[in-house]
């Protein structure tokens, strides 16, 4: 009898052990990269479009007359947003390599995408892995937020007029995650998910700026929704300022 009791005791001790191990989370604390502002540098630059600007495509909102009614003027789908001087807007520029192994604190603020006028605003934006991604429906119609990632988890959420904002996160880096609305075929957006805070979207003048970079050697990638990607290597010395120019060729 005593033997049996001991055996039972041992058995239970045995089985409980691995559980204990599982229940104890890793105690390794995340060490965040601290950037010394006295020696940090800047990469800025311009993205150009070299070619004939394709004719603007008018958006057909026939799928939903309620959406069409929200616009007094024609809406255009500017997938290549170049101005007369060839400056290219809406290009996502970010640090692709050079910061591996560094952890960056997450901004407390969410990155927000709004559905307004049956249009995603903004069309192109960046976010850090794990940062809050907020989606708002400001329209009087039912929308549907459907990211189509290849690396992150795919999800699809209906969001009716007046619904509470959605809060999601992308857990893995992925440039870019395409977002669509299943209800309104013309609605498109892209979210660049990166593990660092060094990303930008070119302005109407095609400009970008990556500030407060620790000195180092970096690969900078520029992504354009139709024209693909380009990358350049650059060394940022302490307190250095580097200027880059990317040129995308059209037809």
């Amino acid at each position: 009898m005593r033997q049996l009791l001991v055996a039972v005791f041992l058995l239970s001790a045995c089985t409980s052990n691995p559980e204990k191990k599982l229940a104890t989370p890793s105690t390794t604390e995340i060490v965040y990269a601290e950037v010394d502002p006295t020696i940090s540098g800047i990469i800025s630059g311009t993205v150009m479009f070299n070619g004939k600007t394709p004719p603007r495509k008018k958006v057909d909102m026939d799928e939903d007359p309620q959406c069409a009614k929200l616009h007094k003027q024609a809406v255009y789908n500017d997938s290549i947003a170049a101005n007369g001087k060839g400056n290219l807007a809406n290009v996502f520029v970010y640090v692709k390599h050079g910061l591996e192994g560094k952890n960056f604190r997450l901004p407390a603020d969410a990155v927000t995408m709004v559905q307004k006028g049956c249009w995603f605003e903004p069309r192109i934006q960046g976010i850090q892995t794990g940062q809050k991604f907020q989606v708002i429906n400001s329209d009087p119609v039912t929308h549907n937020v459907h990211p189509r990632p290849k690396i992150n988890r795919e999800w699809n959420q209906s969001q009716e007029s007046g619904a509470v904002p959605l809060i999601r996160r992308f857990s893995k880096p992925e440039v870019m995650v395409r977002v669509k609305c299943n209800i309104h075929g013309w609605m498109k957006a892209w979210v660049g998910v990166v593990e660092n805070p060094y990303y930008a979207v070119t302005t109407a003048d095609g400009n970008f700026e990556l500030k407060n970079l620790p000195p180092g050697k970096y690969t900078i990638e520029a992504w354009q929704e139709e024209l693909g990607v380009q990358e350049q290597e650059v060394v940022v010395p302490p307190s250095g300022k580097q200027t880059l120019q990317f040129t995308f060729k059209g037809e």
């Binding site: 039912t142 459907h146 699809n156 959420q157 009716e160 007029s161 299943n182 209800i183």
Partner: peptide, 19 residues
């Protein structure tokens, strides 16, 4: 009661609901 009109309901189904 989250969908206000029948159009909203049809749109909801077009969207494929929420995964």
């Amino acid at each position: 009661g989250r969908q206000k009109t029948l159009k909203d309901v049809v749109d909801f189904y077009v969207g494929g609901g929420t995964s």
